[in-house]
Amino acid sequence: MYWNMWSIDRILILFVSVAFLVIGVQVTMFHYRQSFHNKAMWVPVISSPIFFIVGIVLTWYNASWLHTSFTVLMWFGVVAGLIGFYFHFRGVGVRVGGWALRNFLIGPPITLPLLFSAMSVLGLISIYWKAR
């Protein structure tokens, strides 16, 4: 396999896909630790492997329906991450002491949902970017 023959969008899609696999493992561990007390916790746990599978297939098989599916999933990932950020930020605030620094350190990680959104944005960049 000659990597120098791959376009940057293909490499980015591969990177984003593998990153979602890793993020999915981390999210699953965090949400399992909290016993999935909110049904919204299942969204990144279920969607991350789907993002991974569609992205990997798109990396190897260039079909228009896969591009469309990947694009829709990445937009969903942006929105899901922003909603997750809201839940995590609110989760820090309901802890004893409110939005104190120690609650940001031991409470729900507010940056992880933003990473979910950021990785989805990178996936969208790989789809929409046109080299000139």
Rank of each mutant, 00 (worst) to 15 (best):
G77T: 09
V57I: 14
V79K: 06
L66M: 07
A100N: 12
I11A: 10
M119F: 05
F104A: 08
V94N: 10
S47D: 09
W42P: 00
F30A: 14
S47E: 07
S47K: 07
P113N: 06
N62I: 13
N4A: 08
M41K: 04
W60N: 14
G55T: 04
V121A: 05
V54A: 05
W6M: 15
N62T: 12
G98Q: 06
G93A: 13
V78K: 00
W99M: 12
M74E: 07
S47Y: 07
P49E: 08
L12M: 09
G107T: 08
F30K: 11
V25G: 08
F70C: 04
A80K: 00
S120H: 02
R10V: 07
I50N: 01
S35W: 14
F89T: 08
M5K: 15
G81E: 00
V18A: 12
V18H: 05
R95T: 08
A40V: 08
V25P: 01
N103L: 06
S120G: 11
A118N: 07
M41G: 02
H88A: 09
W6R: 15
P113S: 11
F51W: 04
F30H: 11
G98L: 03
W3Y: 14
G91T: 06
L114G: 01
F20M: 02
F104I: 04
A131H: 08
L73Q: 01
V25R: 09
F20L: 04
S47R: 03
V27L: 11
W75R: 04
F30S: 15
W75M: 11
V92G: 00
S47L: 10
L58S: 03
W65R: 04
V96Q: 15
T71L: 11
G77R: 01
G123N: 00
M119P: 01
L14Y: 05
S69C: 08
G77K: 06
L105A: 15
H31S: 07
G55H: 00
N4Y: 11
N38H: 12
F89E: 00
G81V: 02
Q26D: 13
F51K: 02
S47W: 05
T111M: 11
M119T: 07
I46Q: 05
R132M: 10
R10T: 09
N4I: 06
L66W: 09
I110H: 03
S48R: 01
A19S: 08
W42Q: 03
N4D: 12
V22I: 11
V27I: 13
A63Y: 08
F87M: 14
A19W: 02
Q34I: 14
V43M: 04
F36V: 01
L112T: 09
V18G: 02
I125L: 13
S117W: 04
L101K: 09
F104R: 02
T111V: 13
W3G: 14
T68F: 11
L112W: 06
W42C: 05
M119L: 14
F36P: 00
F70Q: 03
F89K: 06
I53K: 04
Y32L: 09
I11W: 12
W42L: 11
W42E: 00
A40Y: 14
G55R: 00
Y32V: 11
I11Y: 09
T59D: 02
I13M: 10
Y2M: 10
V72M: 06
A118P: 03
W129Y: 15
V27K: 01
W65I: 12
L12Y: 08
F15S: 13
A131T: 13
G91A: 07
P49D: 06
